[in-house]
Design a binder for these strands. Sequence first.
DNA 1: CGGAGAGTTGAGAAACCTCAAAGCAGGTGG
DNA 2: CCACCTGCTTTGAGGTTTCTCAACTCTCCG
Lengths: 240, 240
Amino acid sequence: MQNAINNPSLRIACSSCNLRELCLPVDLGGQEMERLDALTSRKRTFQRGDYLYRCGEGFRALYAIRTGFFKTQVLHEAGREQVTGFQMPGEIIGMDAISSDAHTCDAIALEDSEICEIPFDRLEALSREFPGLQRHLHKIMSREIVRDHGIMMLLGSMRAEERLAAFLLNLSQRFSARGYSPTAFNLRMTRQEIGSYLGLKLETVSRTFSHFQEHGLLNVKVREVEIMDMLRLRSFVGGT
Amino acid sequence: MQNAINNPSLRIACSSCNLRELCLPVDLGGQEMERLDALTSRKRTFQRGDYLYRCGEGFRALYAIRTGFFKTQVLHEAGREQVTGFQMPGEIIGMDAISSDAHTCDAIALEDSEICEIPFDRLEALSREFPGLQRHLHKIMSREIVRDHGIMMLLGSMRAEERLAAFLLNLSQRFSARGYSPTAFNLRMTRQEIGSYLGLKLETVSRTFSHFQEHGLLNVKVREVEIMDMLRLRSFVGGT
DNA sequence: CGGAGAGTTGAGAAACCTCAAAGCAGGTGG
DNA sequence: CCACCTGCTTTGAGGTTTCTCAACTCTCCG
């Protein structure tokens, strides 16, 4: 991941969409990149709270996040919701919809955001021409599966402190990969949304933040987080 | 799913591998099917407890389960393990490995089993030739993502009874789709493995089984399950 | 027949949830 | 510009669920 981001040529080639996910590990040729850029030329902006897509809507395109922050959630009959992920610039969302030609979750902007639309049939056509792009598309989908397994591990076998530590370290790593500080960042989501993602109630999330702060692991002021002791935070996830 | 399984021509065409997942919704032409069959000609058998692949091994192929039963699990540093899925005939496993060219979990046979190997580079080549197959491969991967979201919902927001009910109903539906009884079946996995999958301890799984039996929802005798009241079992997952 | 692995059941402990109250921040309208 | 309202966050107290530890049973195999 870091390689691609630090590779100026790839970055420029994909500048239209911040397509880190699509660009990184592939050696896309000039023509290939040009046509990929043409594919992703349609952009849309969203305000905080807007839906990028809703559960049940027909599937047409994947979306690359250019700027901003999204969450995806699945709704349960009893009104219960489960946040399945938080997405940041350079990440691709919408792959859940391929299986049934309809979206199976909602995607909602957590702040003002801009996305690139990638019409899926045209992406498939292009990937039939370019094996490198084809393999890369497969890698993106596979990475989503691996990511989900990690969350299953978190939800299935970690305690509250471990879950929150893992969550913060994941955010830290992703901000860092985008050139932002790994230790100080702004949470775009509410305690309730973090709780839904981590399988905890919002009060437990809040208490665990306070607990971490008491022990000098981090400073929290509502949405502002500063990690003070990265090593000890890591030891929560791996060890103990 | 049901359509494909009930369509004899598709079934025969894919007879070599029980490739329900690969065959179902596509209208594969004769030549297409023939070449897919050629691709999947290499078969392997496994005994209960054998590893189909291990975490860290290089990625070469996907695997279609012909007969038998597998589990996949990810291992955590502290020796903790999380079962990420149970796979039955007609399902494809190994897609986690595409992202990093190495398997990210273990796949272990729960009973004597037979699989078809699908060399991934050849599958990609074939899917560049046949858009129907290409789209279908994407659907299989997408379905895996959707399935994982369902498990995240289960792990993140259901209580023990709801989790076990959802698990049993899912097994029931999958057995049913394969022509077996939806109400009476044999569990191939231990209480511990069910517990790991559902984010519960084995004792909790055992107690919840007993609890369901006391209330006349099902009969359990160790690994033999008979669902007595499907409707009430369903109401556990949706309602309450 | 004995041993090992798997499953059941009980009692007490721990983690997390629920309900409730109060504080804080940001936006809106007077 | 200020007051107020709304939604988010924090903190406390008590309740529930699930876990832990332990003992016992069952079943399958050698």
